[in-house]
């Protein structure tokens, strides 16, 4: 199939304290034109997954130790860096959380877009500049031709993120990886950027891997959701199924901890998850969520496998096995 398919991806950190499992057997599929949201808290491995797909891991200490990253039939995980250079920015692109620090402060906006077009598309100076203006117009930057010669510090955070998106989509990538693309932005600007990503996806048919901690953004954007905890995917499924009937206690905890307004309102006590995410060096044997889990029992000392509980809806939890979806939802 085309699009992105990650199979059994494992990344280890080789540190003085030993070899730490940053990612363990992560598998994902993002077909063309679809959006998969990868959610979880700081340190759960979602950014690590993105960097591994982009082959941008900090090596050392990090290294891909197992698995494949298939993009349109090519295993990116096995490509030599020389060939990866031709893929990165062309077939796969990435946008980051902080648009201000992702752009080069001493190069103009135009130079940074033109660089991609010359390198990957082989465009000449004039043609590249013309295309850069079109790209800025496409991402909704007013007065695009004049903006081309501005430096990033002259632009607001929202405008910088638009420029980042223009650079990322310059070569019509098959896959766009967006790592917390709106976390640093105000809500009204966030809405503009999310709408822009949806429009561009509809026009180009790119696959979108959206990394976020914000369940609101997931609900607005995603077709599929994968929930990560301590370097593993613990639940994955269609967005409606995961929100309607979350099966993993961690997913339920995240949804319960998100103030959703509506019926709850003032004085409704938020469900919190006791404790905090364990460090990679102190992961318990077996299920990593067990020490914080209200449902933990004897079996949780072993590692649960990701099993399908409904078509396309998988969960790694012994307590969720065999629990009908509606009973699980009632227990949330």
């Amino acid at each position: 199939m085309s699009g992105l398919e990650v199979r059994g991806l494992s990344v280890a950190l080789f540190t003085r304290a030993g070899v730490l499992p940053a990612l363990s057997g992560v598998s994902l599929r993002v077909p063309p034109g679809r959006t998969l949201a990868l959610v979880g808290e700081s340190g759960c491995g979602k950014s690590m997954t993105a960097l591994a797909i982009m082959r941008l891991l900090p090596e050392p200490p990090a290294r891909i130790v197992a698995g494949q990253v298939m993009l349109d039939g090519v295993d990116l995980a096995a490509l030599p860096e020389r060939r990866m250079l031709a893929v990165r920015g062309k077939a796969v692109s990435m946008i980051f959380q902080d648009p201000m620090s992702s752009l080069n402060p001493v190069a103009t906006v135009g130079e940074q877009i033109v660089e991609v077009l010359r390198r990957h598309e082989g465009l000449g100076g004039r043609a590249a500049r013309q295309r850069a203006v079109e790209l800025l117009e496409l991402v909704g930057i007013p007065d695009a031709a004049a903006r081309l010669d501005e430096y990033p510090h002259r632009l607001s955070g929202g405008m910088c993120q638009r420029v980042m998106i223009a650079i990322a989509i310059a070569c019509r990538p098959a896959l766009l990886v967006a790592d917390e693309p709106t976390t640093a932005l105000d809500v009204t600007v966030q809405a503009q950027i999310l709408e822009l990503l949806q429009r561009l996806q509809a026009e180009t048919g790119m696959a979108l891997l959206l990394i976020t901690h914000d369940l609101g953004v997931v609900a607005e954007m995603a077709d599929e959701v994968a929930v990560m905890y301590a370097g593993r995917i613990v639940e994955q499924g269609p967005v409606d199924a995961v929100f309607d009937a979350p099966l993993h206690p961690y997913t339920r905890g995240l949804i319960g901890a998100t103030p959703s307004g509506g019926t709850a309102g003032r004085h409704a006590r938020l469900a919190d998850i006791p404790g905090s995410v364990p460090g990679l060096a102190e992961l318990p044997a077996g299920c990593a969520f067990a020490p914080r889990c209200p449902l933990a029992f004897g079996a949780c000392g072993a590692q649960p496998a990701l099993l399908a509980q409904a078509p396309g809806h998988v969960v790694a939890c012994f307590a969720a096995e065999g629990v009908p979806a509606d009973a699980a939802a009632a227990g949330a």
Binding site: S156, V218, A219, A222, F243
Partner: peptide, 26 residues
């Protein structure tokens, strides 16, 4: 009204159904 409309709702069905007012400009 625009702020409320722009805030993402952690409910996919509601998110799809509602009419969003996306403010232009900054």
């Amino acid at each position: 009204h625009a702020l409320l409309s722009a805030a993402p709702v952690a409910n996919p069905r509601l998110a799809r159904a509602r009419q969003r007012v996306v403010l232009q400009g900054e």
